[in-house]
Every structure is written in C-alpha cells, then in structure tokens.
C-alpha cells in the first residue's frame, strides 16, 4: 500500500500557451490571449501510489503529464521530485537522473514508436541513452527482461520486429517495456488503453498494477473514464478546464462525490450507480468552454445546475470536505 512520503509534487502548476494574434491584432496592439491549458494545480503523488487524473477532452490532462515528464515547460508554479525543484532543469544530460526515475507511456503507441526502429531498438534506447548498461549482453538481458515483464513472450521473437508488424496491444506493451526497462519510480500513463480493444485493456492494466505491487512504482494514470480510474487508482483527481475541481480517495470520488462536476460525470456512467442519483442533478449540459476563454468566477458555472451569484464572481478555493478529500465548490462549504 502507498507510502506516505510524496515522490512528486506539483505546486500551483500553470501552463499557458500564448495565442498568436492575427496581423490585425498586432497592428492595433491588441494583447493576444493565452490558452490556459493548466491553470494552477496542486497535486502530490506518493511512493507506490496510483493516482488517476480524470477529465474531459481538452481539460489539460496530457499537458499535466507533459509537464511532469519535462516535455512542456510550465509558465508558473513548481515541479518537485522528492523535494527537489525540477522546474527549471533543462537539457538531456542535466535531466538524465530525473529521466531515469520518471517515465511515460503514450496514448497512441503507434505514434510513439519510430517506424524505422525495431522493438529491440525501442526498448534498448533508454538503457543506452541513460547509460544503464555496460555491455551488449547486459543490454540484451535487460531488454528481454523488460519485454517479458510487459507480457511479450518469448522476448527474442519480438526483437527484430518493426512497429507495423505488431498488433495494437503488442505495440503498447513495447512502449511499456521501454518505460519500465529503466526501472523508474514514477510512470505517467496518458490514456494507455483508450486506443485498445476492450479484451486487451484488462491485461495491460494488470501489467501496470503489477509494477506497483512488485516494484512499488508510482503511477499517474490519465483517463477520461471515471469507472476505469476507480478500478485502478488509489486516489482520483478530477480536472476541469485546467483546474482540479475535486480530489480524494477513489471510493470517495466515485461513490461520494461533492463537486457538481464530478457528480455529473458519475451520473453519465451508469456502471457505477449513476442512476440512483439521477433525480438529484440533471445531466451535464452545454459544451466545455475553450481553455482560451475560461469563465470568470467558478469556471464550471455556465454548466453548473447549482450555480448561484457568488459562483459568477469569485473562484472557489479547494475546500476540505472529508479526510484527504478536497472540492473546489462554494456549495461544499456548508
């Protein structure tokens, strides 16, 4: 079970992408806006803990993952790994120790594999670039070991294959093997099963859960699927338009959600008993607003059935509604 010490912390993490104003705006000196993809997030992940990051498309999940894996540079806030500030560390050699401990699994495994690299090349790449092996036989051993751990058996049969010679599930296993070949302490998994057949999903999830159980590896599991998050995670963080609206244990979030957005999310998924509450709150209406035009006040208010005057003016802070359970809603106060 999870250790209490945090391995990773995000403090008021913020990623704004500048919008390139048109020529007209520039001539008139109009300020170009920004896409507030991630807009002040506090999140901690414990050693060996599985945290699910849940949100609709465009809520900024991938961007959070990219910040943690140092693929995107935040515009504000801090990224702390075991208390050490990694926010401004850059360059492949300076990041080598960090890369050794934090890895990533991508949503689209086909895109994540270089079409001209064999499976062996893919899994060997981190071992070579992070200088984790001394000689070729060690390299081959660790590649085999990683492929086997990711469920590709016998590993030798896959060495010389190219990505197009693999099935979708096998490709994702290759990506996973590449990530776990370095024996990281945290893996960011960005919708690792959303492109896969339902029949293969459970197997891939099992590989990830095994990693935690055997090696005490922490996992940030990014998904848009609340029941899936509940089935795998210890804690769930719900993201809406770049901000965490609710965070708590998986059971609390799933069966006792406090934020109207989480409630709506759950109502939209009958598998976890959404039906029981249907009467209380209507289903979500309207489109997700664009991250380029985040509403004033509570960013959920245009779609919130419980919105009142204060919501349109003031942004609610994260309010403690239970042990380890925070909800950013004015209605949670009482």
């Amino acid at each position: 079970m999870p250790d209490t010490a945090d391995i990773l912390r995000l403090e008021s993490m913020q990623v704004h992408f500048p919008i390139q104003g048109g020529l007209f705006d520039r001539v008139l000196g109009r300020p170009a806006g920004a896409v507030r993809a991630v807009d002040g997030i506090d999140l901690n992940i414990g050693r060996g803990e599985i945290v699910a990051l849940v949100g609709e498309s465009g809520s900024g999940k991938t961007t959070v993952g990219r910040v943690i894996t140092k693929l995107a540079q935040p515009t504000g806030g801090r990224l702390l790994f075991e208390g050490e500030d990694m926010t401004s560390v850059r360059g492949s050699s300076a990041l080598r120790p960090y890369r050794h401990r934090v890895q990533m699994i991508f949503q689209d495994a086909y895109q994540a594999l270089n079409p001209r690299h064999t499976v062996f090349d893919v899994v060997a790449e981190p071992l070579r670039s992070l200088r984790l092996v001394d000689n070729a036989s060690q390299l081959a051993d660790r590649v085999s070991e990683a492929l086997a751990a990711a469920g590709l058996n016998p590993p030798g049969d896959f060495f010389a294959r190219f990505p197009h010679e693999l099935s979708g599930g096998q490709r994702q296993r290759v990506v996973i093997a590449g990530a776990l070949a370095v024996r990281p302490e945290l893996i960011v998994a960005d919708e690792p099963v959303s492109m896969l057949d339902v029949s293969i999903r459970a197997q891939i999830l099992q590989v990830l859960v095994d990693l935690r159980d055997k090696h005490n590896m922490a996992l940030l599991f990014i998904t848009h699927d609340l029941p899936l998050a509940w089935s795998i995670a210890d804690r769930i963080a719900v993201l809406y338009l770049g901000k965490l609206v609710e965070i708590g244990s998986a059971d609390e979030i799933t069966f006792n959600p406090r934020h109207p957005y989480t409630v709506a999310l759950r109502n939209a998924t009958p598998q976890i008993g959404g039906n029981a509450d249907r009467g209380k709150l209507p289903a979500l209406q309207g489109e997700v607003p664009s991250a380029a035009r985040v509403p004033r006040g509570c960013r959920f208010h245009p779609r919130c059935p419980l919105a009142f005057d204060r919501c349109r003016e003031e942004e609610p802070p994260a309010i403690e509604v239970g042990p380890q359970h925070l909800s950013a809603c004015w209605r949670s106060e009482c």
Partner: peptide, 17 residues
C-alpha cells in the same frame, strides 16, 4: 512534432541522437 520524438526525449536521448 511526432510522438516518437517526445518518447525519445523522455527516455533520455540527446538532441544529436
């Protein structure tokens, strides 16, 4: 811009590589 370049970065490959 392809994802495999992102992955290469995550697994520690340098710009030259």
């Amino acid at each position: 811009e392809r994802t495999f370049v992102d992955r290469a970065r995550v697994v520690g490959s340098s710009n030259i590589v």
